[in-house]
Design a protein around this nucleic acid. Structure first.
Lengths: 337, 337
DNA sequence: ATGAAAGCGCTAACAG
DNA sequence: CTGTTAGCGCTTTCAT
């Protein structure tokens, strides 16, 4: 394991010059720069993260907090983060923030305290007051993605606008009985998203002069399986069934499509469905949806964070773009004739 | 930020004793132990990873190499790894090994060289000879999950046995025309899995005295979308269509089920389908499958690695259990009458 | 069982 | 622009 001394010797300069040449901090003559570069690559020298971290206080490592990994949205954001960080020479250290309070406590009181990371990205995590305090007490740059976090600049789509758009798409096609599949109050606690989505849905209806029919609003946990289950309930009774459904996630929307098929309903003649996400499966099901781009959200979060680390800008919360993608799951309702 | 000196002072002992008490290395009297523990928690002291790493050479951090994150299998393994490592007080640092050769090179020549990790878990990554050499040159404990890696103890299911089991299930039901959806030669390079799965399929047929019909064997990329596409081809011609399909992943199997439905085929009367994984969606589709438990594979990999780190055991490659889960997607073929 | 002290490998004043 | 040097906070001999 070559050390900085070896490089200094080989390059015929002092260790300080090596440090400067390799880190790009401080002035180094072109000649020295070249000599160092050459010696370093000859020796296969790479700066030790521990030594550098100890001396400088900078680790070139970012902590990422996620509630679950095995889920399209989180995995996509994580990929974006990881890709962007790597490009900048940063490592990504992953902390899964489950429901287990012991584990959570350990993360905030040990893992994040041991100075392994320069900053933290929190993806859609819901924190207790205490946890939030602990996070801020780190005194490190923080960026949120997804759910808003008090005091933390956060990137997320405008959930209310998203669902208003989806609902309006259906209303504009002529649907009047528009169902809603959202998050349960339980998942509400984690995401804060469903309630905003619900509000957007209700707002769109109100603007169209339509009353909310509680019978048409059901809750699931954002998965395809639950989407299927609740949609079957919603669609089972031909007398009360909606002609269209707005689902707060593509996975639930696809569950609803499968339920409709199993009930013998044809899309879009008998039922229109709109989702949210533009999940990788949306196309396969011809699902009309509102696209959000989690991968890109991750990359953006990294960009914001690095700015903060470099002291360039006071990161600000930010609404991300969303876009209606119309496919074959929506059309005008069948005329009752 | 309290340092070890502060703790030493507060506990009335030397820094050496604090270090010993907190790390559990070396002998410490019960009294000193208690005093240190108390002082540390009073001060909210946590060992600095950089300082400890620099002094000891141990980082309490494990590097995980994955080809992609946004995929059920990888995300599940990763969750298992992350959970198990956290339980042991280790951090998880993620390296996504894409196809980009520049990025890959950077990972092996920089990221893994900077001594940030004590050991590496490689999940289903296919390495070049050079990369493999670089990995071994780290001289750190290594464990593989999924695809076998030369010279690295690896955990994985017996792919040949898995597909032989799936195929045999279909044969035992009386199917004779059994199709196969496997990986393409392109994905073969990454996984090495498809070829083993293909071999198991062929072995099962051979043992039943059935010749492989190349017309019935198609390739996809392990996704639902491609599974759908190739299955439509496979099932389109009623004269040549198989009565059963064995797919090398549940996602492809589900794609095949969707294709069959779109072609007006009833499962399991007109077509039986078997997958591999026991993906979270398998139940929704009533898919008969061979379960492998990636989350558990991740946990096991961690256990093996920690043993190696502690110098306890020479980790050995290992076949993991798999299990046939019979659901409603398989039955006897319809009698031609 | 405990303490003193020598590093671990690097960075960042500081002096020139 | 460059070199010297004092730490960064901890671990680990080596004594005692």
């Amino acid at each position: 394991m070559a050390s900085i001394k070896d490089v200094a010797r080989a390059a015929g300069v002092s260790v300080a010059t090596v440090s400067r040449a390799l880190s790009g901090r401080g002035n180094v003559s072109a000649a020295a720069q070249a000599a160092v570069q050459r010696a370093a690559s000859d020796l296969g020298y790479v700066v030790s993260s521990s030594a550098s971290g100890l001396a400088s206080g900078r680790t070139r490592n970012i902590g990422v907090l996620v509630p679950v990994i095995n889920h399209w949205f989180y995995a996509s954001v994580l990929e974006g983060i990881c890709t962007a960080l790597m490009r900048e020479g940063y490592d990504t250290t992953l902390y899964q923030l489950t429901k287990d309070s012991g584990q959570r406590h350990q993360i905030f009181s040990d893992f994040l305290q041991r100075q392994r990371v320069d900053a933290v990205i929190a993806v859609n995590v819901e924190l207790s007051e205490q946890e939030l305090v602990a996070l801020h007490a780190l005194n490190k740059p923080l960026v949120g993605v997804g759910g808003p976090l008090p005091g933390v600049p956060t990137l997320h789509v405008d959930d209310e606008a998203v669902s208003a758009l989806g609902t309006n798409h259906l209303l504009s096609l002529g649907h009047v009985r528009v169902g809603y599949i959202g998050g349960s109050s339980e998942t509400d606690l984690d995401f804060r998203v469903p309630s905003h989505r619900r509000i957007g849905y209700e707002r769109a209806l109100a603007e169209a002069g339509i009353d909310v029919d509680e019978q048409l609003c059901v809750s699931a946990d954002f998965t395809m399986g639950q989407g299927y289950t609740v949609a079957k309930q919603l669609l089972g009774n031909p007398a009360t069934r909606p002609t269209a459904i707005f689902a707060a996630s593509d996975e639930m929307a696809i569950g609803a499509i499968l339920a409709a098929r199993d009930l013998g309903l044809q899309l879009p003649q008998d039922l229109s469905v709109v989702g949210v996400d533009d999940h990788e499966l949306a196309e396969l099901f011809g699902l009309t949806t509102i696209r959000q781009q989690p991968h890109q959200q991750g990359e953006l979060a990294v960009a914001m964070l690095l700015k903060a680390i470099r002291g360039e800008a006071p990161a600000r919360a930010h609404h991300l773009e969303h876009q209606l993608i119309v496919r074959s799951s929506t059309s005008r309702p069948a005329t009752d004739a």
